[in-house]
Design a protein around this nucleic acid. Structure first.
Lengths: 341, 341
DNA sequence: TTGTATGCGTTATCAT
DNA sequence: ATGATAACGCATACAA
């Protein structure tokens, strides 16, 4: 391992001081153009590479943003991350990503690791297990910007990016009712996560609005993955009378349900009308195409990252520095899986 | 911003030297158990947090691994990343992720940024644009482990993780031929990427094996995204005579093709038998289910990360330190989209 | 077992 | 416009 070039080496080589080299390399205005040129040339020549640690040690900044996601291999989450990465990259920040795998313990460990890595800011979508967010307190105490997205901490003071899940679910359910559905099954993951709790609320509101009684037996809790469809359909088949509407909290799972319903000879949407959530690619490819809620994940990622970095650069000044909740627009996209008229 | 606790503060508080504190905190054997206990307590009490930069500045290690992917929001890539993150996390490494968005220029910029961030190792899946890999030379020169996966650099000396794309495509094509197909369309992205070049080879080999002439007009180059299906189907419809087999290089695109073929009244698999690639979730949800090649992305991510870190920890000793290519098992999964008998 | 002194590479302060 | 110096916080060679 040959020693690396430092500003001292360049300084010695050119007969100037390290300070001047540092200034030149950082485009400080108060340095002669000719000197600057010389220094840049020498730096290039020698393959000089700025040592970020030394710089960080002084600056107390890392230009790293941490992101904690429930899982990386989710259609929605990877869209969000793509949006975040794009913005971060453009603004000169790196993304450190870790997954909680829906486990509170892992989330705590990841938060600690992010804290020790001294990320400049942190974006989090909470794990399903998480009931308190004390593990993020060190960030707040230190003044490190912390924001949540999608699965947000309702009762914290941190900014959260969401869609209006209540309204979205209400729209979805209302739409099913308008199509003539009277017994609508709702499939969600867990009430611990705000996202699903809100959607259940919206579902209930819509029923109420239409004088349809809420039946707890029509709410199914399931892992919203492709594999869950079969079991969900089994439960539906056992219901008597059979439901005539199905509102599933994500599209992959809705697609899986549709597939298994069809295998049982049930017609979609005639026998059961189906609505999904997220507007994943899959909703446009299965047959029939799935009515869904467009959830702008990529845009949410961009927006969240922009705001986080904005707060970083201009503390206390950013438009959102004391905003608690940013709600993105989402809308119902009606397709064949629910269209009866 | 209140000043942070350092080992000096703890040292002063306890009347010992900073050295002792440093040693205690790092579990150095040569330190009295009682002293160690005292120091740990004081550290906990004061909310001491080790400064990674100062440590890195000395150690010249970051415990950060860089990953450059073509895009984050891809079903395959996010599986790989999930596998990588799991292993890295368990072994105490952070993941810095950036996307090239298939652009050579962005890849170069990202590589530079990773280099400046001094990642301990780098994992790369190349952009579609990339024709040379000189931008990774600094890593090699410095001795930073560099490995490729999926889209590997064929003529470099770096380890690459792949599946046998030639064999996989050959199997897929052979299967279609066995189902009675004589005019098989192959859809791929670009020959610049080894993955697709190899698959085209496998496709050709299978034809050759079965005395079917290779017709360049049956090879379609397209962006393998959901949106591309319509245009691909348009091209197919113009072919005379109509093809009777379709081998698409990923499942989302295959699903999209199937959808548009069906909209045109073409029966799958009777009129055209279809094979996809990757064994994405979608392949099990559309109708008919898509015959595909199982590409173990998650496992590839795990394996690549394990090997990279292994090389990091035991330079020159790892089982793979001088291996050029690791090939994972992949297999043809036959489903309804191609099954004629 | 513990401590002293020094270097890691950069940048901010102050002086020239 | 440039330079000398100190400080960032840690870890290690060497000394005791």
């Amino acid at each position: 391992m040959n020693k690396e070039t430092t500003i001292y080496d360049i300084a010695k080589e050119l007969g100037v001081s390290p300070t001047t080299v540092s200034r030149a390399l950082n485009n400080h205005p108060a340095v002669n153009e000719k000197t600057k040129k010389k220094i840049f040339d020498a730096a290039l020549e020698s393959g000089y590479q700025s040592n970020v640690f030394a710089a960080n040690l002084r600056n107390k900044r890392t230009y790293n943003i941490g992101v904690i996601v429930p899982r990386l291999n989710s259609s929605f989450q990877s869209s969000v991350l793509a949006g975040m990465e794009k913005v971060a990259n453009e603004l000169g920040f790196n993304l450190i990503i870790s997954q909680s795998l829906e486990s509170y313990d892992k989330e705590v460990a990841n938060a600690l690791s992010m804290f020790n890595s001294r990320v400049d800011g942190l974006l989090v979508s909470l794990a399903g297990d998480t009931e308190n967010i004390d593990h993020f307190k060190p960030f707040l105490k230190k003044g490190t910007p912390l924001m949540f997205y999608d699965r947000i901490a309702e009762h914290s003071n941190s900014t959260g990016f969401t869609i209006d899940n209540i309204q979205a679910a209400q729209n979805a359910t209302n739409h099913l009712i308008q199509q003539g559905c009277k017994r609508i099954v709702h499939v969600l993951r867990t009430l611990k996560i705000n996202v699903y709790a809100d959607r259940l609320k919206g579902y209930k509101y819509a029923l109420l609005e239409n004088d349809i009684p809420f039946r707890p037996s029509l709410v199914i809790y399931a892992d919203l993955v492709e594999e869950a469809g079969e079991e969900i359909v089994n439960q539906i088949l056992k219901m008597d009378p059979m439901p005539d509407g199905l509102f599933v909290s994500n599209d992959s799972c809705a697609a899986s349900c549709i597939r298994h319903l069809k295998l049982e000879g049930i017609r979609i949407p005639e026998d059961i009308a189906v609505v999904g959530f997220n507007n994943e690619v899959i909703s446009r490819l299965v047959e029939p195409n799935i009515t869904t809620i467009n959830y702008p994940g990529y845009e949410m990622g961009e927006l969240a990252m922009k705001n986080l970095i904005n707060q970083l650069e201009k503390p206390g000044e950013g438009m959102l520095h004391n905003t608690k909740k940013i709600t993105l627009r989402s809308e119902l996209i009606i397709r064949e899986s629910s269209k009866r008229k």
